[in-house]
C-alpha cells in the first residue's frame, strides 16, 4: 500500500493457493493494520496470474511491468531484472530511460521457476527458505540435469539413495534453476546493474549460482518479493495522478 506514490504504508505477504481469497485477505489485513478502510483507497491495481479476476481492483497490469516499476522505484540504475516467481521466470531488459523495453520468459515447463524449488524442498522435507543455508555447506554440488520437475525429483531421490549429501544435492538444485534462468538472461542480453526480484531472490544459493553463470554481481533486497506489488501500487498512483483526483 502506497501513499502519495512514495511512502509505503503497508505490506503483507500471503502464500496462498487458488482464487482471489488470498488477495482479499491481504487487502483486509493491510487496511486494518494501517487503520484505514476501502474508502481511503483511491485506486487498487491487481497484478499476477489472478489479476483479471480480482473484483476490488480498478485496473490490472502484468507482473512484468509491475516488477520493472517496483525495482526501478527503489534502484533506478538497474538495467536487467531477473524475476523468479512461483509460476514463471522472467528476465526484463530496461532501457536507458528506465522503461521496460523487452522481456524473456521461461518456455516449455516449470523448470527454473519457484515451483521447482518448492517441489524439491518438499521432497527434502524442509521449508524452502532452508535451502540457502544448506546449499552454502556444499563442497561439491551434485549435477541435477533433468529439466522436468518430476524427473528432477526422481534424480534427487536416486542421488540421495546413492550416498550424495543433502547439501550437495541442494546446491545442485540451485544450480539447475540458475542455469535455466541464465539461459534466458543471456538470450535477451545482460546489461548492468542486474537486480533479482521475486521470492527466489531470497535464496542465496540460486543468486550466487546465477552470479557465477552470468559473471556479474546481482543485487537484491529483503523486499525483492514485494517488487511486483510495489510496482502495481506505483502504477495505481500514476493512474490517479492522470485522473487528477486524490483522496485527502
Amino acid at each position: 500500500m502506497l501513499e502519495d506514490g512514495e511512502r509505503i504504508i503497508g505490506t503483507e505477504l500471503l502464500v496462498a493457493g487458488i482464487g482471489t481469497v488470498g488477495a482479499e485477505k491481504i487487502m483486509e489485513t493491510v487496511l486494518k493494520k494501517a487503520d484505514l478502510s476501502c474508502d481511503d483507497i483511491d485506486f487498487v491495481m491487481a497484478t499476477g496470474y489472478g489479476r483479471r479476476n480480482f473484483d476490488p481492483a480498478h485496473g490490472e497490469l502484468s507482473e512484468l511491468s509491475c516488477h520493472a516499476k517496483g525495482v526501478l522505484f527503489t534502484n533506478p540504475q538497474v538495467r536487467t531484472i531477473i524475476d523468479i516467481g512461483g509460476q514463471d521466470a522472467k528476465v526484463l531488459r530496461i532501457n536507458d530511460e528506465g522503461i521496460l523495453e523487452n522481456f524473456m520468459m521461461n518456455d516449455k515447463c516449470a523448470a527454473g521457476t519457484g515451483r521447482f524449488l518448492d517441489v524439491m524442498a518438499h521432497i527434502l522435507q524442509m521449508p524452502v527458505n532452508e535451502l540457502e543455508k544448506r546449499a552454502e555447506l556444499s563442497g561439491n554440488p551434485a549435477k541435477i540435469s533433468s529439466t522436468c520437475t518430476v524427473f528432477a525429483e526422481s534424480e534427487v531421490i536416486s542421488q540421495l539413495a546413492t550416498g550424495e549429501t543433502v547439501e550437495n544435492v541442494i546446491a545442485g538444485i540451485c544450480n539447475s534453476v540458475a542455469s535455466r534462468v541464465a539461459g534466458l538472461a543471456k538470450r535477451i542480453g545482460i546489461k548492468e546493474e542486474v537486480f533479482m526480484s521475486g521470492g527466489v531472490a531470497q535464496n542465496g544459493g540460486v543468486r550466487q549460482a546465477l552470479e557465477k553463470e552470468l559473471k556479474v554481481p546481482i543485487k537484491w533486497s529483503e523486499t525483492s518479493q514485494m517488487m511486483g506489488a510495489l510496482g502495481a501500487a506505483i502504477s495505481a498512483y500514476e493512474q490517479v495522478k492522470k485522473r487528477g483526483v486524490l483522496n485527502e
Partner: peptide, 22 residues
C-alpha cells in the same frame, strides 16, 4: 492460456509505454 495472456499483456504494455502511455 494464462501464460499466453501474461506474455501478450507484457508486450502490450511495452508498446503502450513506447508511445508514452502506461
Amino acid at each position: 492460456e494464462a501464460q499466453y495472456e501474461t506474455r501478450v499483456q507484457g508486450l502490450t504494455e511495452i508498446m503502450e509505454s513506447k508511445k508514452g502511455g502506461c
